[in-house]
């Protein structure tokens, strides 16, 4: 294993936090406490956390509509995220973002875009900004296989390559754009191979293996910090749940056996737990992390439920930084 002992614990804690946080949601949705579309990252935790473990706190990331995992992977506190899902005034976005937009700027997130591919230009711009300001920060843009077919992906990867910007284009390839299999919509199904068209490194990594993702990302981050430009990483991963929680999809777009097989054999948490045990981390140590995470998620739910709803008269707040005679 390449992560240090305390980093391994932290990585496991973050993966487990994503899992338990999202497992708590169906009950709250059923209770009418969480409205709107809710997309779970369960199954994709190693890709998220593996990538973020290779970043510094002051590095930037952008995410997607499947937005709960990114802040947790980057180290965000759970309570303001849960409060946001419930639309409360204490939510990380003051009740203006919701499930698809859990951006926490305090951990370097500059946007969670529910327009597929919409975060890629922001991530690239953050890389440009770091370069212009002369810092050694890097920027990592998470996006899915679907976003790799947006013009924004190609336009930005081209500019980042031409200008050697410190950007990591990180594809969470979970194989399906809602119900559309990537194999039916990608001329080149391996997203990472598109890197060749822009003369930058493109790496395919097993997105279910945390340390493999970490290693690939660390290499890309080091290259970016040296001023050598961007990389494209494709983590082959899998979404265990449906596109959105509670949504009923036609069953035939992916076989039940395929889902079962991933859950049984390719669960990133089970895989990493086994690796930790092999490396000498004891059951007691892992059990303590597990009970801490359970408690933190429970506290986040309680915090959210007890938090006030936003005051309707505050709706114009945060529309402008410098309001000029607004509202009219």
């Amino acid at each position: 294993m390449t992560l240090q002992v305390d980093q391994r614990r932290e990585a496991y804690r973050r993966m487990l936090s994503i899992r338990r946080f999202e497992e708590a949601l169906p009950k709250r949705i059923a209770a009418g406490e969480i409205l709107g579309s809710v997309h779970s990252s369960i199954g994709q935790e190693a890709a998220l956390v593996g990538a973020c473990m290779a970043l510094r706190d002051d590095d930037y990331i952008t995410g997607t509509h499947r937005s709960h995992g990114h802040p947790i992977a980057k180290g965000a506190k759970l309570a303001p995220l849960m409060a946001e899902l419930m639309g409360r005034a204490t939510g990380i976005c003051k009740g203006r973002g919701g499930s698809m937009h859990l951006a926490d700027a305090s951990v370097g997130i500059i946007g969670e875009s529910a327009i597929v591919g919409g975060g890629i230009p922001l991530a690239t711009g953050a890389g440009l900004s770091a370069h212009v300001r002369g810092t050694d920060q890097v920027s990592l843009g998470f996006f899915g296989d679907g976003a790799a077919n947006q013009g924004a992906f190609h336009e930005c990867i081209n500019m980042a390559a031409a200008w050697k910007l410190p950007v990591i284009f990180f594809c969470e390839n979970n194989l399906y754009a809602v119900t559309t299999p990537a194999r039916t919509t990608h001329g080149q199904p391996d997203v990472a191979k598109r890197a060749a068209g822009y003369a930058i490194p493109g790496v395919i990594v097993d997105g279910q293996e945390l340390e493999a993702v970490y290693e690939a990302t660390r290499t890309a981050v080091e290259r970016a910090r040296r001023g050598e430009g961007p990389s494209l990483i494709e983590a082959k991963t899998y979404r265990f749940d449906e596109h959105a929680i509670g949504i009923v999809m036609p069953l035939h777009y992916r076989a039940a056996e395929e889902v079962e097989c991933y859950r049984r054999e390719r669960d990133p948490l089970l895989l990493y737990r086994a690796r930790l045990l092999e490396a000498g981390h004891g059951e007691a140590e892992l059990g303590e992390i597990e009970s801490t995470v359970e408690r933190m998620v429970g506290e986040a739910v309680e915090f959210a439920r007890k938090s006030p709803h936003p005051d309707p008269s505050s709706v114009y707040d945060y529309l402008y930084s410098n309001p000029i005679g607004y509202p009219a």
């Binding site: 930037y60 952008t62 500059i110 946007g111 919409g118 890629i120 230009p121 922001l122 991530a123 690239t124 711009g125 953050a126 890389g127 440009l128 900004s129 770091a130 212009v132 300001r133 920027s139 013009g151 924004a152 336009e155 930005c156 081209n158 500019m159 031409a162 200008w163």
Partner: peptide, 23 residues
């Protein structure tokens, strides 16, 4: 000064990302 390729969507969005991060 960044003399951009013909990629209006991309460089406009990059400017937004740069604005959010201090430029």
């Amino acid at each position: 000064t960044w003399n951009a390729p013909i990629s209006e969507l991309g460089f406009s969005g990059m400017a937004i990302g740069a604005a959010i991060t201090g430029l």
